[in-house]
Simulated scan of single mutants.
Amino acid sequence: MSRVVLSIGSNLGDRLSRLQSVVDALDDRLRAVSPVYETDPWGGVDQGPFLNAVVIAEDPELDGHGWLAFAQRLEAAADRIRGQKWGPRTLDVDLVTVSDGDTEVISRDEGLTLPHPLAHLRAFVLIPWQAVDPEAGLTVTGAVKPVSRLLAELDPPDRDGVRLTPLVLGVAG
């Protein structure tokens, strides 16, 4: 069974609907959905705030490359244009980590780097992830570290830039 942690975000158009499109596409593969957070942009590009969340899903048919293709299809359906690095986007779907059973997938392929190489530096990933999976761990420089510890190591202004909203992503069923 393949399990994925996806970080989803949007800062263009109907941001909540863009995030909801990911939840809807996952359908019965969805295992958990974090609260929705409004977050300051990351990466130094002047732009509006993002809505961000983390979702966890499982699918016995998908591996890391399959999850990547799935994420890219969702971005394309949302008219994502890959322009400026860390720039505004209709939808961003990042694979944070993929596991095959109890084994975390490590990949340094040309198109697929797992776990996500910057996830441990991003409060907008760690805060929603911890909210939905308090025991989560992430491999950083070859060692698994608790998400709670990674989050505590971030600067307070980074953590403060991630604000809980009253918005909710609907789960069918």
Rank of each mutant, 00 (worst) to 15 (best):
L151D: 03
V93E: 08
T139H: 05
G111A: 15
V36A: 12
V162M: 05
E58R: 13
R108Q: 11
V22N: 03
D24S: 12
V45Y: 08
P156C: 09
H120P: 02
D14I: 01
D63P: 13
L138R: 07
G111S: 13
V147S: 01
D46I: 11
V93K: 05
D158E: 07
T141W: 03
V98Q: 09
R159Y: 00
W42T: 13
E61F: 10
T113W: 03
V147C: 02
A78E: 14
A119S: 03
D46N: 12
Q72D: 07
P115T: 06
L12V: 15
R18A: 15
P49M: 04
R73W: 01
T97K: 15
G66D: 07
D24N: 11
W129S: 04
V105L: 11
I8S: 01
P117E: 13
V4K: 09
F50P: 00
A123M: 02
L26A: 03
A71V: 05
T39E: 14
P156D: 15
G83A: 11
G83R: 11
L19G: 02
V147N: 00
S10R: 00
A78Q: 15
G142N: 03
R3G: 10
D27Q: 04
A71K: 11
L19M: 06
A143I: 14
V4H: 09
P128I: 00
T141S: 11
D100R: 09
D133G: 02
R82H: 14
S148W: 08
V140E: 09
W129E: 10
E61R: 10
W86S: 09
L151E: 06
A136G: 10
G43P: 00
A131K: 01
P166K: 15
D28F: 14
R108F: 07
L51Q: 01
A77W: 02
E61L: 09
A143C: 06
R89D: 10
P60F: 13
V55L: 13
I8C: 07
G66L: 08
A57K: 06
F124M: 06
V45Q: 12
W42F: 12
L114P: 04
R15W: 05
R80H: 12
V23T: 00
E75R: 15
G43F: 01
L91H: 03
D46W: 03
L74A: 01
A71I: 08
V140C: 05
P166C: 07
S17I: 02
M1Y: 03
V36L: 13
Q47R: 02
